[in-house]
Structures are given as C-alpha cells and as structure tokens.
Design a protein around this nucleic acid. Structure first.
Length: 483
DNA sequence: ATAGGGTTAG
C-alpha cells in the first residue's frame, strides 16, 4: 500500500473526528511535499477547500513551498493566484527565492510589483533575495539601486544584505572596494560577521594576497569574531594550492584550539597536495589520521586517491577500490568513473575501461565528453584507430558533441598510423563541425608530417603557424626537438 | 535570505 493511500485514509479519519479542521491537513500537505508528492498534497488541499473550510495562509505557504522545492514554479504561481486568503510576505519570499534561483529575475520583479499593489510589504529578506539575484544578473551597480530603494521605504538592510553585496563586489574583482565596504558597515549600524570576513578572506586568497588574508584573520580574532571551519578551510585550500603543505598542516592542527573540527574539506586539499607531490605515503598517512579522528573520506577524497593511483600506474588497485566504494557507503560519481576509465585507457586496458562504461550506465550515471575522450584516446593509443573512429561516429550519432580533445585524440592515432593525410581530412571535418582547432591540433599534424618523412614541409608549416601566432614559439621548439 | 563544494580527459 502506497504511503499516500495511508495518508488519505488518515485524512478521512481526521475528517470524521475533527470537523473540517485544516490544521491536520497542513501536516499532511507538508508530509506529501517533503517526499515530493506534490500532486497528492494538492489533492488534500482540494478536499479541504471543497469541504467548505477556509485554509489559512500557512497551509497555502506549505503547498507553495513544496511546489518550489520540486521545481514546479508554474504550479506555485497558480496557487498564488487562486488562494482564498491573502498571501503574506512569506508566500512572496518563497516564490521570489525560487524565481531568482532559476535565473528569472525579471519575472521576480514583476511578482514584487504585484506584491506592492496588494499592499503586502516586502521585508529585509525579500530585498536581500532580489539584491543577490541582481548582483549576479545585472551587477552590483544595479543592486545598489535596490539597496537605496529598500532604505527609502524604511526597510533596514541587515548583515546578510551587506554580505550579499560584498560578495558581488568581490566577484566583480573589486576587492579593495569590498574591504572599504566591510569597514563602513559599523557606521551603517551593522556589525560584520564571520561570513563577511570569509567572503573577503577568500577573495584575498584567490588573488594571492596572503599577507592581507593573515592580517584579516588576526583582526577577526582581535575583534572577537570567531572564525568558522570555512575560515580555516579557505586558508588551507590556498596554502595547499601554493604547495605550502607544512603551513596548511599547522593551520589544520590549530583548528580545535579555536573550537573548530576539521572536516573533509579541510583534509582533501592536503591529500591532493601530497598526491601531486607524488608522496602517496604521506597522503595515506593523512587519510588514516582523518579517519582516526572520525572524519570519514568522502567521494572527493576517493577521487583524489584514485587519480594518484592511476598516475602511479597502480590502476588495478584503483579498480579494486572502485569496486568496493559502494560497500563503504560512498557511491562513485561521474568523476570517479572518468578517473578510472582514463587510467585504464592509458595503461592499454581499453577493453576493461569499456566494461566500466557499461557499468556506470547501468548505475544510472551519464557518461560525459571526458569519459568518451578518454576511451577514444585509449583506442587510438592502442593502435585501434579504426575502432576509435567508429566509436567517435557512434558518439556523434547519439547526440554527443565531441570537443577539440576528442578530435585531437583521433588525429594523433591517425598520425601514429602514418595516415597524416586522413588526419588532415579530420581537421577539415572538425572545422566544418564548428570545433576550433587548438595548438595541440597543429603540433600533432606537424609531428605526423615529420614522422612520415616530410620534414621540410613540417618545418615550413610550423614556421608559418608560428608567425601567425597559432602556435607558440616555446611549443614549436618542443616539436622540433621531437623530430 | 549570505561564505567554504574540493576531485576527471588532449
């Protein structure tokens, strides 16, 4: 028996016991919405309305929110139009949030107009939602106009409003302005919080301003603004990218002193850093440390380790780990399969890689162009260029659009098979399909020519492409060395 | 209603 049937039978009981009450119905609607059964929720609402009861605004809000969560904006708007009581600010905020999240700012502004006409006054949340979307779609300058509007209407911006704006300013690459804004906040009657600082900190790190980041962190501590796990993760991530793993570890180990427990986002960049330095033993050491502290590896941890294993030639171990992932409560994702498929393809085990392609499809994972490019590359490298081309054609037939990397792999295969003429035909085909050749495309073809003995032609072409700026001088030198 | 989401192909 389906759970909704059980729900409806409970509803009938309620109707006999509680005469036309709507409170139990709200719970029922909420329950159906939570499990995505919006149709059943709507049916409950209809029964309630038909019974002669007047549902209150909360019941309507629950249903509207359910529609929004299942992506049925159209139905949410339909309920808004037809509801038998006046919508409140929560109703509008729910709908505006969903419209903004799906990039429909224009429609959101129309709903705001409708809201104002009905004299339902927008609150700080309403404006913050719209300011955030405006930052993303039209830029901060436009969003500032909304800030002015909310102030003139007597609605006071709060820390979230300012955070949204500061984030927008940072994303527009104007970090110094964002810092000014942060410093002005107290004079607007609003204290910056940890999120404000994290936004600025992240921007400082991603623009390489490490000294400023360190200064801001100590300022936070001095002002009594406690850092969060995110604060530390921002710093760890930056240090690991710079290869400063020792300093990253220092920060990670200091986190508990500040009341923060490192999570997988704290450990993963460190593992990645060790793997990049080919220090697998240290990566494993930190894996063990994180587990011993109760922080379990997530799929990104596994993907990082699988990548390192494949690069290290230990692809069989990678396959073994992939097989065991599900039993460890961590389901492989597209990137997991791509990693192992690529590893197998590079080791000349394309057949096994193909098996994984079918396995991932069976699991409901949709291969992407990276999956296919790895397989095309594997077939080409194994000298099975005809098979590679057939696979390529099948892809095109099923609506997958190959990119430059896919084309380059085929061309490389053809050149290695001393069929540079066919590779050139393929270049023509690539261009006709609207795919722009890359520097690699040209160097593959030039090396193909040289390989077949047309050294002079290859050099001439190389010079020609160099003078046209299509191939960089440094790349050209590398090509000549390989002749 | 705001910040960290890291990991894959030539």
């Amino acid at each position: 028996m389906g759970s909704w049937r059980k729900g409806l039978s409970i509803l009938k009981t309620w109707f006999t016991m509680v005469t036309f009450g709507y409170y139990p119905c709200t719970s029922l609607i909420r329950g159906f919405c939570r499990i995505g059964k919006t149709k059943k929720a709507t049916r409950v609402m209809e029964i309630l309305e038909e019974s002669g009861a007047v549902p209150d605004v909360i019941t309507y809000n629950v249903l509207i929110s359910g529609y929004c969560k299942s992506g049925e904006i159209h139905n949410a708007l339909k309920v808004l139009d037809r509801m038998s009581v006046a919508p409140d600010v929560v109703t509008y905020n729910t709908i505006l949030r969903t419209l903004c999240d799906s990039g429909k700012l224009k429609q959101a502004m129309e709903v705001l107009d409708q809201q104002l006409q009905k004299e339902c006054y927008p609150d700080v949340i309403t404006y913050t939602i719209l300011i955030e979307a405006t930052c993303k779609e039209s830029g901060v300058a436009q969003a500032m106009k909304l800030l002015d509007e909310m102030r003139t209407k007597g609605c006071k911006p709060d820390v979230v409003t300012y955070n949204v704006l500061i984030n927008g300013i940072c994303k527009e690459g104007r970090l110094d302005e964002a810092i000014k804004f942060l410093n002005y906040m107290p004079s607007y009657g609003c204290q910056p919080n940890v999120i404000t600082h994290n936004i600025i900190l992240r921007s400082m790190c991603s623009t390489g301003r490490w000294m400023d980041a360190e200064k801001l962190l100590s300022e936070m501590l001095r002002k009594g603004c406690s850092p969060s796990v995110v604060t530390f993760n921002i710093l760890i991530n930056f240090l690991c990218r710079k290869g400063l793993l020792g300093r990253a570890i220092d920060i990670l180990e200091k986190m508990p002193k500040h009341g923060c427990t490192p999570n997988s986002l704290s450990y993963n960049p460190l593992l990645h850093g060790f793997c990049k330095e080919k220090k697998m033993d240290r990566a494993i050491e930190y894996l063990e440390i994180m587990v011993s502290r109760g922080c379990y590896p997530d799929i990104v941890t596994y993907n990082t380790l699988l990548t390192a294993l494949c690069k290290d030639g230990k692809v069989d171990i990678a396959v073994e780990i992939l097989n065991q992932l599900s039993s460890k409560g961590c389901s492989p994702v597209l990137i997991t399969y791509n990693t192992v498929i690529d590893g197998l393809s590079k080791m000349g085990k394309t057949e096994r890689a193909m098996q994984l392609l079918f396995e991932m499809r069976e699991r409901g994972l949709k291969p992407d162009i990276i999956t296919y490019s790895s397989l095309v590359g594997g077939l080409s490298r194994e000298g099975k260029v005809e098979e590679a081309i057939k696979f390529f054609k099948d892809l095109e037939g099923s609506g997958i659009r190959p990119n430059a990397i896919t084309y380059n792999s085929i061309m490389l295969g053809l050149c290695k098979a001393r069929q540079t003429d066919r590779a050139i035909d393929f270049l023509v085909y690539m261009v006709s399909k609207g795919c722009k050749p890359t520097e690699s495309t040209y160097t593959i073809l030039i090396e193909g020519l040289a390989y077949e003995g047309f050294t002079k032609e290859a050099l001439d072409l190389l010079n020609e492409l160099c003078s046209r700026g299509v191939v960089k001088k440094s790349s050209a030198e590398q090509v000549v060395v390989r002749f």
